[in-house]
Amino acid sequence: MAASADDRTLLPYGGEIYNAVLDFLYREAEILDERRHDEWLAMLTDDIRYLVPVRVTSAHSLADSALRDMAHFDEDLYSLRKRVERFATEHAWAEDPPSRTRRHVTNVRCYEGDSDADVVTRSNLLLFRSRGDIHDHDLLSATRTDALRREGGRLKLARRTVLLDESVLRTQNLAVFL
C-alpha cells in the first residue's frame, strides 16, 4: 500500500506542496464539519481506499495493535457514496438531528509520493462531536496517513488509513467521517 510514510523524504514545511496539502486538509475538515458531503466525495479519487482498522491492546509494542482482518471502515467509492446518500434521506436517525462536529487537524507533515500518489501526508485528528442536549460529547483522537494524487490540477485523496487511539470506541457509532 502506498500510504506508509516510513522511509520517505520529508518535504519542507511551508513549501508549495506543503501549503497545498494544508489547504486540502483544512478545506476537507470544514466541508465535513458543515456536512457538505457531496463536496467531500468530489475530493476523493475513483479508486479511493478509506481504512480505519480496529485497534487492540497488545503486549510489549504497538506494532501489532491494529487488526489486519477487521476495521471500523474499509471503504471504496461505492460504499462511501452509499453512506453519503443515506445522510440525504429523511431517515438517517443516527445523524438526524445532526451532530455538531469540529475537526482539529494538526501535526501535518508531507512526504514525497510514489507511482500511486503525488504526496503522502501524516496528520493528527481530534474530532469533537456533540449530539442533542443531554449526552456528553464524544472525542475521537487519531492519526491519519493519506496519499494524495493530482487529478485535473487538483489534489484528491486516494488512500487514507486512520489509526484511532481507542480500542473500545466511546462513541455510539461512526456516523461521521474521520
Binding site: 480505519v52 476495521a71 471500523h72 471502515f73 474499509d74 471503504e75 460504499s79 452509499k82 453512506r83 443515506r86 431517515h91 438517517a92 436517525w93 443516527a94 445523524e95 449526552h135 470506541l169 455510539q172 457509532n173 461512526l174 456516523a175
Partner: peptide, 22 residues
C-alpha cells in the same frame, strides 16, 4: 464488505438502532 456497510460500529443499520436504544 457487506458486514461493514450494514452492522458494527459504522454499519448503516446499526447506527440508527443505537440512536433509538440510547
Amino acid at each position: 464488505k457487506a458486514y461493514l456497510m450494514c452492522f458494527g460500529s459504522s454499519g448503516m443499520f446499526e447506527q440508527d438502532d443505537v440512536e433509538n436504544w440510547a
